[in-house]
Simulated assay, not measured.
Amino acid sequence: MRTRTAAVLLALLAATTAACSSDDSTKADTKACKSAMRQQFEDALKAGSTASPGTRPDACEGVDAATLQKIVADLVTEGADDELDEYDFSTP
C-alpha cells in the first residue's frame, strides 16, 4: 500500500474514533455512514498530501464507536484490495 494511502487511512480511523459520542435519539444509518466515509476517503486520496484530517461525517451521527471501527476496517480492507489489484503477482 502506498504511504499516502496508509496515512489517509490512519487519519480516517483517528477522526472517526476520536469523535465517538452517540445520541440515542438519532436513528443510526450505517449504510449512509459507510457511504459518507468512503466518499471522504476518496476525496482525501485525491487531495493527496494536501488532504486535511477528516471529521466524523454527519451521516455517522448516532453510530457507535465499535460500528465505526468496523466500517473503517471494511474501508481499509477495500482500499488495500484496490491497491493490490494494481500489481501483477503472477509467477514468470
Rank of each mutant, 00 (worst) to 15 (best):
R4I: 10
T55W: 03
S25N: 12
F89W: 08
T5P: 04
D23C: 11
T17D: 09
K70T: 05
I71S: 02
L45Q: 14
A59E: 15
V72C: 05
A32S: 14
E83K: 02
M37C: 02
I71H: 02
L10M: 09
R4L: 09
A80L: 12
L75A: 01
I71T: 04
R2G: 12
A80T: 08
V63K: 00
A44Y: 11
D23E: 11
V76L: 07
D29K: 05
A14N: 08
V63D: 01
T26L: 15
E78W: 01
I71F: 02
D82W: 03
A36F: 05
D88C: 03
D82E: 10
K34V: 02
S49D: 15
G62N: 04
L68D: 00
A44L: 10
E61W: 03
K27F: 10
R56W: 07
V76G: 03
A65K: 04
K46L: 13
D29F: 05
T55A: 15
C33W: 01
Y87V: 09
S90V: 07
D58V: 12
S52D: 12
M37W: 01
T30I: 06
V8F: 02
D58W: 06
P57L: 12
A44H: 10
S52A: 15
V72K: 00
K27R: 13
D85G: 10
T17N: 03
D58E: 14
E78Y: 02
T17K: 03
G79H: 01
A80K: 05
D24I: 10
K27N: 12
T77G: 08
D43R: 14
G48M: 08
R38I: 03
C20P: 03
C60K: 01
S35G: 10
A73Y: 06
F89V: 08
A32H: 02
D82A: 14
E42H: 13
D24E: 07
A15P: 02
L68N: 01
A28N: 05
M1L: 07
A18P: 04
D82H: 04
E86V: 03
T3S: 07
A32P: 05
L45F: 09
A73R: 08
T5W: 09
T17S: 14
Q39H: 10
E61A: 14
R2N: 10
S25A: 15
V72P: 00
S49A: 13
V76Y: 07
E42Q: 15
K27W: 04
E61K: 11
K34H: 07
A51L: 08
S90F: 12
L75V: 01
